[in-house]
Amino acid sequence: MAELSTTKDGIANQAEASDRVLQILSEAGRLFASKGYEGTSMRDIAVACGISKSLLYHHFSNKDEIYARVAVGSTLELYLFVRDRIPDGPPSQKIRAFMIATAEYFRRYRWAWIASTTAFWNDPDRLRQKERLTRRDRFENFLRSLIQEAIDAGEIRNVDVSMAGRLILSSLNWMHRWYNPNKSATPEQIADIYFNMLFNGLRTGEMVDLPTADRPKAARRKSRSST
C-alpha cells in the first residue's frame, strides 16, 4: 500500500503535501467517483490535471497508489491542511479557523473528499481501513483539543468535548451531500455561519425553561381520566 513520505516526526514532507499532489488526488477522486476505478486510466488523470503522464508518474508509480492515497491519504492531507491554518489567538477563534479551513479543503478538493468518503467504509482492504480510522481519530482529537482549550479559557461552558466535536464535524462532513457549488454561499461562508450558530446559539433573550418530554404525557393521561 502506498505511504506518504514522512519526516522522522511523522509529518509529511513539503513536496508530498504540495498543491500538485492535492490537485492529482482531487482530479483522480472526481474520475474514480464518476467513472469508477476500472474505468479510470492514468492517461485520464493526467489529462484532467493538464499535465504529462511522465509528470504524473513522477508523483505516483501507478493508479493503485493514487487510489490508495485518495482512499487513505486524504485524511492526512486534510489534517495537515487544517493544522497549518490555525492561527495564534483566542481558542474559540481557533475552532472557527478549524471549521473554515476544513470547508476550504472541501471546496478546493471536493472530489477527493467525496471519493475518500465513499471509500471510507466500502474499501475491503482492512489495513487501509484501520489506517483511515487512525488518521480520522487524529483529526478529531485535534479538534477536541481546541474545544478543551476554549473550555479551560472560560470562552465556552463545560460541555462534553467528544459530543461537541462530533456536532462540529457532522455539520461539515455531510456538506458534500447537499452543497451546490452554483449557489452563492461558499463552503467557507457556510462554515462561518455554522460557527456563529454553534457558539452564539439559536435563542434570543433570556433562557426559557422548556417543557420536558414527560410533561405532555402526564397532561394526556389526566385528560383521558377526566372524560
Rank of each mutant, 00 (worst) to 15 (best):
L210K: 13
A48V: 08
T6M: 03
H59G: 13
R69K: 13
A46M: 09
R132Q: 15
R128I: 09
V70K: 00
S34R: 09
R135T: 06
E27L: 06
S61P: 06
P187L: 02
T118H: 07
H176R: 10
V72F: 04
W113N: 11
A12I: 13
D152G: 08
W121N: 14
D19S: 11
H58I: 09
R20L: 12
Y79Q: 02
E38F: 06
L172V: 09
G205W: 08
A185H: 00
N141L: 12
T75A: 06
A33T: 14
R107M: 10
R96H: 04
E77V: 06
F32I: 10
S225N: 10
F120S: 02
S171L: 15
S145C: 11
I11A: 12
I11S: 13
N173Q: 12
M99C: 10
D19W: 04
T212L: 03
R224W: 04
R136E: 10
T75W: 03
Y179T: 08
L167V: 14
K183V: 05
Y57K: 14
N62H: 13
A213Q: 13
V21N: 02
R107N: 08
R69G: 03
I168A: 03
S74M: 14
T186L: 03
A17F: 05
Q148G: 05
R107I: 06
A103G: 08
R221K: 04
A68V: 13
L202T: 08
K217L: 03
S5W: 04
A15H: 09
G89L: 06
S5Q: 08
G10Q: 11
S226T: 11
P91Q: 03
M42P: 04
R69L: 12
V82C: 00
K35T: 08
P90Q: 10
E131V: 12
D209M: 13
A119M: 05
A153T: 10
S26R: 01
D44P: 07
A112Y: 01
M163L: 13
D44A: 10
A17Y: 05
N62K: 14
G36H: 10
Q129L: 14
P91K: 02
I156Q: 04
Y67K: 09
G39R: 09
E149K: 09
E38Q: 15
L167S: 12
G205L: 12
E206D: 14
T227G: 14
Y67T: 04
G29F: 02
Y67Q: 05
S145D: 15
A213S: 12
K217F: 01
I51A: 05
A68Q: 09
D152Y: 05
Y37H: 00
I100V: 09
A28G: 01
F98H: 03
R166I: 11
L56Y: 07
L143C: 13
K94Q: 04
N196C: 06
R221H: 02
M163R: 10
I11E: 13
E38H: 11
G89N: 05
A219V: 08
Q23S: 10
K130G: 10
V21P: 00
Q23H: 06
S61C: 09
M163P: 01
G39V: 08
L198N: 01
A71K: 06
Y109T: 12
R138F: 03
V82K: 00
I100G: 01
S5M: 08
Y67E: 05
M99F: 04
L56A: 10
W111H: 15
A115P: 01
R85Q: 05
I66T: 00
V161P: 07
K130R: 13
